[in-house]
Structure formats: C-alpha cells, structure tokens
Computed example of a mutant assay.
Amino acid sequence: MRRALAGLLAGTLTTAVLTVPAATATATAAEPYSWTNVEIAGGGFVPGIVFNQTERNLIYARTDIGGAYRWNQSTGRWIPLLDHIGRDNWGLNGVASLATDPVDPNRVYVAAGMYTNSWDPNNGAILRSSDRGATWQRTNLPFKLGGNMPGRGMGERLAIDPNRNSTLYLAAPSGNGLWRSTDSGVSWSKVTSFPNPGNYAQDPNDPNGYLNDNQGVLWVTFDPRTGTRGNTTQTVYVGVADKQNILYRSTNGGASWERVAGQPTGYLPHKGVLDPVNGMLYLATSDTGGPYDGSKGDVWKFATATGQWTQVSPIRPPVPTTTSATAD
C-alpha cells in the first residue's frame, strides 16, 4: 500500500511539474524576495538596559542569548545589532555586558560570550563599533565570558572612562580578575595590581560546570569629578563577588587598589551607581547572584567624601556586620 501510494504521489508530482507552462515557471523564478526579521513578541531575558549619559534616547539592551539591540526613538522599535553572528561563533550572541560612550555617542562596546564552561567552545570577545552598532570589529579574549551564566543581571562589567574614553575596564568572571584597554578596546591587558578576583559560586559542587563558576569581578564605576576631559579619571570603584570584600577603590587611575573601609558584608554587590552631584555611591546587594534565586538584600549609600556608610533599604532586614556602617 505504501509503495502504491508513493508511486501515485510521485506520478502526480511529475505530472504537475510537466504541465506547468514554461512562461509561468520563468516568472516565478525571477520573482524578487524581500527578507526581514521575524518579530518575536516574547521570550528570552534582558539582563541589562544601558542608557548613554550624554545623548537623550540613545538606549541599548543586552540579552543573555539573543544579541544586543539599540532603541529607535522615531519608530518605537528595537534594532538588532548582532544578527551577523554566524554558526561558528554562535556564543557571541550571549552579551555579558555593554557600554555606550558618553564622550563619543557613536561608539558602543559589547563583551560577548555565552558560557564560561565547555558548552561554548570559544573564548569571549570584545566587539567595538564606531557607528552605533551598524558595523563591528572584534578582539578575542584569552578567557570565556558568560552572557547566559548565573549572575548575568549584575554589572555592568564593561565600563568606559568618562574623561578619557579610550580607556575601558572589563570586570571578568571565573577568577580572571580585572582587565583594561587604553586604545578604545583594540587590545586588553590584565590589571595585575587588582587584588581580588572574587570567590562566590552559586553551587561549588555542581558537576556540570555551570553553577560552580566563580562569578568574579562584577562591575566598574568611575567618579568623573576626579578627572578632566582627556585625562584619566583617578577614582574608580569595582564590585567583587566576595561576600566579605565587596568593594574596592583606586584613587590613582587604577595603579593601585584598596578595600573600602566600613563596607557592609554578607551580600553580593549587584549594582554600583555613583551620584556625582552629591558624591554618593549606591550599592544594591543580594544574598545570591541571581537571576533565579535571591531572597534578601540591602541598598546602601557610601558618602565618598567622609567614608560614611548608610543603609537606605525601604524594607530593613538585620544590618550585616560592618566596622562603621549605620542605618539611616
């Protein structure tokens, strides 16, 4: 029966092909095609939305496995920026961090790589663009990045010096420490003076190499008041995945680093944002790296002029042990 049916279908198909007029076949073959992206109205995870600090409505979004996007204010749409990534480098669709240049808004940088374990066979890379993501150049890193790893909502790991925008920092995972570029992301070197590569892993005993990764150095924040246009910003803050040592500071442009005194302990510093007008550094903390877990945490502010720490959480859990922190 199957052979008979197959023969009948084959015969029907052959007859249909033979009876198509030549003119119609030629017209169909010459018909032009217009290719566009298929719109997906939901799905995926956006760990970070990054606003340019000097140009209104210049906004980027990074996703864990789906590339990076730029907001188009006139159309109200997001423009995909990494659709050129091919099969051989599929891991570069994982965006671990993104930075938009406050001095030259046309420049944007992506720290790309999907997994820090063997699931992604390639190392991470820094992608750089001078036309807002229309075209890219790439520098390969000697280690992996994890756009789809635990802790991916923290950051931003990639940061641009707001005074000397040719200088960038990358806070790396997996115990790889802090890295710096002084030529607009073309080349990178490890900051050997930085003292703490982090030690927190969600599950140190995970046999899959996923939950046991050291989430490492988490973010970099500059104090723009400590530099002048064209000169290196002197004071830089760095958050680390180490519940006893979450915050470090350099006051000499990254030459040396020290643990900030009086800092809260017991939680991880997910975000660190500086208010340069009032000189306050705000930290948002959690007991885990996320994004699927985490049950408690605090918000703290650090007065950069006096060194005073104040807990400003809307809901107050018990204050972790500190040397000079106070509740507001």
Results as ranks from 00 to 15, higher is better:
residue 174 S to H: 01
residue 175 G to H: 03
residue 175 G to Q: 02
residue 176 N to F: 10
residue 176 N to I: 05
residue 176 N to C: 02
residue 177 G to M: 03
residue 177 G to F: 03
residue 178 L to A: 05
residue 178 L to T: 03
residue 179 W to P: 13
residue 179 W to G: 09
residue 179 W to T: 11
residue 180 R to K: 15
residue 182 T to Y: 02
residue 182 T to W: 02
residue 183 D to S: 09
residue 183 D to Q: 06
residue 185 G to Y: 00
residue 185 G to F: 00
residue 186 V to A: 15
residue 186 V to H: 14
residue 187 S to V: 07
residue 187 S to C: 07
residue 188 W to H: 13
residue 190 K to P: 03
residue 192 T to N: 10
residue 192 T to L: 13
residue 193 S to A: 15
residue 193 S to M: 04
residue 193 S to R: 02
residue 194 F to H: 00
residue 194 F to C: 01
residue 194 F to A: 01
residue 196 N to D: 15
residue 196 N to W: 07
residue 197 P to C: 02
residue 197 P to G: 00
residue 198 G to I: 05
residue 198 G to E: 04
residue 199 N to Q: 00
residue 199 N to H: 00
residue 199 N to S: 10
residue 199 N to L: 00
residue 200 Y to T: 06
residue 201 A to F: 01
residue 202 Q to S: 13
residue 202 Q to C: 08
residue 202 Q to V: 11
residue 202 Q to D: 13
residue 203 D to I: 06
residue 204 P to A: 04
residue 204 P to T: 02
residue 205 N to S: 12
residue 206 D to H: 07
residue 207 P to L: 09
residue 207 P to D: 09
residue 207 P to C: 09
residue 207 P to A: 13
residue 207 P to R: 08
residue 208 N to W: 12
residue 209 G to V: 04
residue 210 Y to F: 14
residue 210 Y to I: 03
residue 211 L to N: 06
residue 212 N to D: 14
residue 212 N to F: 07
residue 212 N to W: 04
residue 213 D to E: 14
residue 214 N to G: 08
residue 214 N to E: 06
residue 214 N to C: 08
residue 214 N to F: 06
residue 214 N to M: 06
residue 214 N to T: 14
residue 214 N to W: 03
residue 215 Q to N: 10
residue 215 Q to T: 13
residue 216 G to Q: 06
residue 217 V to I: 04
residue 217 V to K: 02
residue 218 L to T: 00
residue 218 L to H: 02
residue 219 W to Y: 00
residue 219 W to G: 05
residue 219 W to A: 12
residue 220 V to E: 00
residue 221 T to F: 02
residue 222 F to L: 05
residue 223 D to N: 14
residue 223 D to M: 12
residue 224 P to F: 08
residue 224 P to L: 09
residue 225 R to C: 11
residue 225 R to H: 12
residue 225 R to S: 15
residue 226 T to Y: 14
residue 226 T to H: 12
residue 227 G to E: 09
residue 228 T to M: 07
residue 229 R to V: 10
residue 229 R to C: 06
residue 229 R to K: 14
residue 229 R to I: 11
residue 230 G to I: 05
residue 231 N to F: 11
residue 231 N to I: 06
residue 231 N to S: 15
residue 233 T to A: 14
residue 233 T to H: 12
residue 235 T to R: 15
residue 236 V to C: 10
residue 236 V to Y: 04
residue 237 Y to K: 11
residue 237 Y to V: 12
residue 237 Y to R: 11
residue 239 G to H: 01
residue 241 A to R: 08
residue 242 D to R: 03
residue 242 D to T: 03
residue 242 D to P: 01
residue 243 K to Q: 15
residue 243 K to M: 11
residue 243 K to E: 11
residue 244 Q to V: 02
residue 247 L to C: 07
residue 247 L to W: 10
residue 247 L to Q: 12
residue 247 L to E: 09
residue 247 L to Y: 10
residue 247 L to A: 10
residue 248 Y to E: 07
residue 250 S to P: 08
residue 251 T to L: 01
residue 251 T to D: 13
residue 251 T to W: 00
residue 251 T to G: 08
residue 251 T to K: 04
residue 252 N to I: 08
residue 253 G to A: 09
residue 253 G to I: 10
residue 254 G to F: 03
residue 255 A to M: 08
residue 256 S to F: 07
residue 256 S to N: 15
residue 257 W to I: 02
residue 257 W to R: 09
residue 257 W to L: 07
residue 258 E to A: 15
residue 258 E to R: 10
residue 259 R to K: 15
residue 259 R to C: 02
residue 260 V to A: 11
residue 261 A to K: 04
residue 262 G to A: 06
